[in-house]
Structure formats: structure tokens, C-alpha cells
Amino acid sequence: MRALISAAIGLVAALALVLTITAIGAPPGETSPKPLLTTVPDHP
């Protein structure tokens, strides 16, 4: 029974954290227009 209560408390805490972050919103700023390179380009 204690495990069930602990799981419920953890779930509520995680949900509260997600809702708080959602309410605050994304931080201001803009993304870079340049794409990120995932591989090294070939240089002959």
C-alpha cells in the first residue's frame, strides 16, 4: 500500500512540474538558421 501511495505522490509531483513548466512557457530567444552538422563534410 505504501508503494502505491508513493507512486501516486511521485506522479502528482511530476505532473505539477510539467504543468509549471508549461505555464511559464519557453524561454525567450531564437533558433539558429544554420542547420547542425551531424557528420564531418568530406574534404578531398
Rank of each mutant, 00 (worst) to 15 (best):
I9M: 06
P35I: 03
T39L: 14
G29E: 01
A3Q: 10
T20F: 10
G10W: 04
P41A: 14
G25H: 00
A23V: 04
I5F: 04
A26N: 15
G29Y: 03
V40W: 13
T38V: 07
A14I: 15
L15A: 13
T20R: 10
L4M: 05
L11V: 09
A7S: 09
M1Y: 07
I21H: 03
A3W: 11
V40L: 08
I24K: 02
V40A: 14
L4Q: 06
A13S: 11
P41T: 13
T38C: 03
E30F: 08
T38K: 05
P35D: 14
A14S: 10
G25A: 01
P27L: 08
A7P: 00
A16I: 02
D42Q: 15
G29L: 00
P41W: 09
I9K: 02
E30R: 15
P27G: 08
P33T: 02
V40H: 06
G10E: 09
A13N: 05
P33G: 02
L4R: 12
T38D: 05
T20P: 00
G25N: 02
I24N: 00
L36Y: 08
L11A: 12
S6H: 12
T31S: 09
R2T: 12
I5H: 08
T22E: 05
V40K: 07
L17M: 08
I21T: 08
A7G: 13
V40G: 05
H43T: 11
S6G: 06
A14Y: 07
K34Q: 08
T39A: 14
T20C: 03
I9L: 13
A14N: 04
A26C: 07
I24Q: 01
T20H: 04
V12C: 13
T38E: 06
I21W: 03
L11W: 02
P44L: 10
